[in-house]
Amino acid sequence: MNLVNYLSASAIPIVILIIIIYGLFEKKKVYDIFLDVAKDGIKIVLKLFPTLIGIFVAVGVLRTSGILDLIVKFVSPITNLLNIPSEIMPLALLRPISGSASIGVAVDIMQKYGTDTFIGLVTSTIMGSTETTLYTIAVYTSCVGIKKTRFVLAAALLADIAGMISSVVIWQILS
C-alpha cells in the first residue's frame, strides 16, 4: 500500500521535472511557453461548465429522489456476478456513453461514500482507466463517413469491462 502511494505520489513531480529539464536542455523559454498556453485550460472548463450543470442536476435529483437506489437494488444481482459493487453500477453503465454524465455520477458516488473509501477509490480508478467509448467511436467513424464498424464496439467494450473489473480487483488486493 505504501509503495503504491509512493509511486502514485511521485508520478506527477517526475513528469513535470523531466519535461522542464528537457525544455531547459533544448534552451526553450519554458516559462513563456507555459504562460502562453496555460490559459487554454480556462476555455476547456468554460465549455464544460453548462454541460456539468445540466448533468449534475439530473444525476442529483435521480439520487435524492431515491430512484437511483431503486435501480441499484434492481441490478445488484448482475453486478454481484461480475464482482462489481452495486453502488458503482450507475457509473459502469454510463461511463462508455457520456463523459459528463459519468463525471456527474462519479462525483455523486464519492460524495455519498467518500473519496478514499473502497467504493471511492474504485470509482476513481474506473474513471481514470476507461474512456467514453461510444462517443469516441462515433467521432472517429463519422469524420470519414464510415458506418460499418465491424467488431470495434465489441472489442472496445470488452476492454472497458476488463478495466472496470481490474479496478475493483486491484483495490480488493490493496485494501
Partner: peptide
C-alpha cells in the same frame, strides 16, 4: 480527498489490462 493522486498507479495497472484486452480482442 486526503490523497488525490493516490490512484495513479492503480489506474496504470487497470488501463494496461484494459488495453491488452482491447488489443487482443481486436
Amino acid at each position: 480527498s486526503q490523497m488525490p493522486s493516490g490512484i495513479i498507479f492503480p489506474v496504470w495497472i487497470a488501463t494496461i489490462i484494459a488495453a491488452i484486452v482491447g488489443v487482443t480482442a481486436t
